[in-house]
Nucleic acid binder design. Structure first.
Lengths: 215, 215, 215, 215
DNA sequence: ACCTCCGGGACTCCCCGTTAGT
DNA sequence: ACTAACGGGGAGTCCCGGAGGT
């Protein structure tokens, strides 16, 4: 009875996880179903017991990969009392994170593929980037203004717009720096990009309240 | 039959140009040699008269595409007396530039493919990005300090490091914003990213002298 | 994508049939694999799932085409009680048969290519021509001597040799006339060849018993 | 001075002759210009000093090859006082003639290619076959009726039609037998075809006067 | 008359997604 | 779930006809 220890649901999940990792490494079209199945010590033919098509796997793997990127972001930012933007940026722009491609940020790894894919795929990116933005906005606001909870609605809105703008800039710079660093390979330039952008972003993130205060 | 008036060099150049455009649109692996040749009303059989391999075409097309991106940058920044950073940023983050993929920035379009390609390809990116950085640094320095020519060496070095850091941040943010906007497709989010990052970058670029002055 | 309802055997058979028709029309080297596949609404890439090489297809298509020519011969000659040589000759040398190339006789259409092909191809022609000869001999003998069943062995042998000689002449004349008619295109000459040779062959086929009787 | 002993006209003629021989061996498409030029110890590039295109060479070589076939026919039939049909048939259906392809009959060798070629090529065949027929008719008439020159116009016409019919049959059988023999390669069957058809044709050619006499 | 080589097109090989049969 | 293989399609290689330029 039964044929293997692994349940069908388990195999499905392992496939999605493996696909997410490989997609980040090699791009969405960079790995074949056959190679993917081989990784799980399965054979090519069994794939369609788990997914109706490759696209279905792409959708699920992308969901997982993008969600993970948000999860990592949230953990790094929020696992202490006060949002720790520095730790997040340090990690995000660390050489290890930039170099190793398996565990990296799915947005940075796959954003380049998205424009050539379907609107559904782009919607997945849109949704996750929106979420990541919210996380960062929240971190900026909590980091900058512990008393914000008591702000009036009008003040909060202004602050929010301000924070959202800052978050957008930071996110753009993070993604851009990571993609540049990866595109140029390991080199003095890539290290300079990571180090310098990291410092500037920390200035920016800290600058939010200060800049407001100074005006 | 036989060959037409067009010289070999001309055909070669047209192939490289077409490849550069298609690569930016669809990625380096996104177009086949046969389709590419068809664009020039040739057949794929003649391809190897011009290139020893597909990789050779990739190298040349990448060179062209990246160089063009630098050229555009230089023109937008420098075609008037005073470096015009605003015009460059406006153009770079315009919806048209972000949406249309044919004429866009090769770095933003292809940076995502580079990590999966050979070290040679990555070196091409490195070289061009280094050049683009220098252009932007020059613009920032000339824009910020018309009298810089008389600065002492020490001051100049400091200013240079400062400007280079700013340039790195700006470039990262530009590339990141463009890639994000493209990844999410045409949407309120993409428009917000482009608009907001544009404004912030203009603040940053203007901030160079002010920041120095304030210390 | 994926494969349609058609089984492999079916596709294989359709390929062979299409090749046989095209070879008769344009010669063995007159059609490319890509064009052939296009006829079945397939693409050239899948060809080697069905045949190890072009030669293998040639062999099978030739087998089919030649066998069909024998089958047509047999049907025309034998579908009534008494062998009907006249009907066969009439059809074989009809303008329609001579002009239209698709449905025509494979021997006449392809004999000219055979000498330039491999010994295997020539053996295929040999085998089928031998069979066609036997069919015609049988027709001549049954047509000429209804009581032949009671002939002594020696007489039968003599009759056989006689009939085989006549069959060889008839077959040569048929093939020769058809090839001449085709080589000169539609013209008074081609019509004269067909008409005249037809009449003479009918004389010859009827002459078998008469010639024997006269000795 | 001058560059070589061979004049341009001579080279032209040698090219045509070599092409005629190769075409008979391998078919009209069976030899490349490069190989042909190599045969004359010339190089590929010089070809277009002699012919505007390959087609022009084909036309001339075909003219030569076909004319030669008529010339051979005429010589064998007529080089003695009385037309010697037997000698012609013997030669034409000799194993050497059938096997060796270089010197063979152009009609038999190339008739199979003609239907796939232009109407001009087919017209060349038509013209030469018409001539060959006339030669054979003349031989049949002179062989059968030395006094024919004095026949009345009406009688001559009847005789002519009779002879032309016989000539058509003989020509068809000759061409057909030769093509069959070549198609099946060297074998008992090919030898049988040649031997048997030869004997039957000789019967037929001799039968002309006898058949007329018997009516 | 040569050399060179362009552009055309064919064949072969290989990989991928997908499906059928076991 | 595996084995097998179909059909799609890209890459690379070869050779041919033809067109310069020396």
């Amino acid at each position: 009875m039964g044929h293997s220890r692994a349940s069908k649901a388990d195999t499905h999940a392992r496939l999605v996880a493996a696909a997410a990792a490989r997609f980040k490494e090699r791009g969405i079209d960079g790995i074949s179903l056959a190679d993917l199945m081989k990784e799980l010590e399965l054979t090519h033919g069994g794939f369609y017991k788990h997914f109706a098509s490759r696209d279905e796997l792409v959708t699920e793997a992308l969901d997982l990969a993008l969600a993970e990127s948000g999860q990592v972001m949230r953990e790094l930012l929020f696992d202490s009392d006060k949002p720790n933007i520095a730790r997040f940026v340090d990690f995000y722009l660390s050489a290890a994170h930039a170099g190793g491609r398996t565990g990296g940020c799915a947005v940075a790894a796959l954003a380049g593929d998205a424009p050539r894919k379907s609107a559904d795929v782009q919607a997945q990116f849109r949704k996750q980037i929106e979420r990541n933005l919210e996380i960062l906005v929240e971190a900026l606001r909590r980091g900058s203004s512990p008393a914000e909870g008591r702000a009036t609605t009008a003040e909060a809105r202004t602050t929010s717009a301000e924070a959202r703008g800052t978050a957008l800039l930071i996110l753009s710079a993070l993604y851009g720096a990571l993609m540049m660093a990866r595109a140029v390979g390991d080199s003095p330039l890539s290290r300079e990009v990571l180090r310098t952008v990291r410092k500037r972003i920390l200035d920016l993130s800290g600058a939010v309240p200060r800049r407001r205060a100074s005006r």
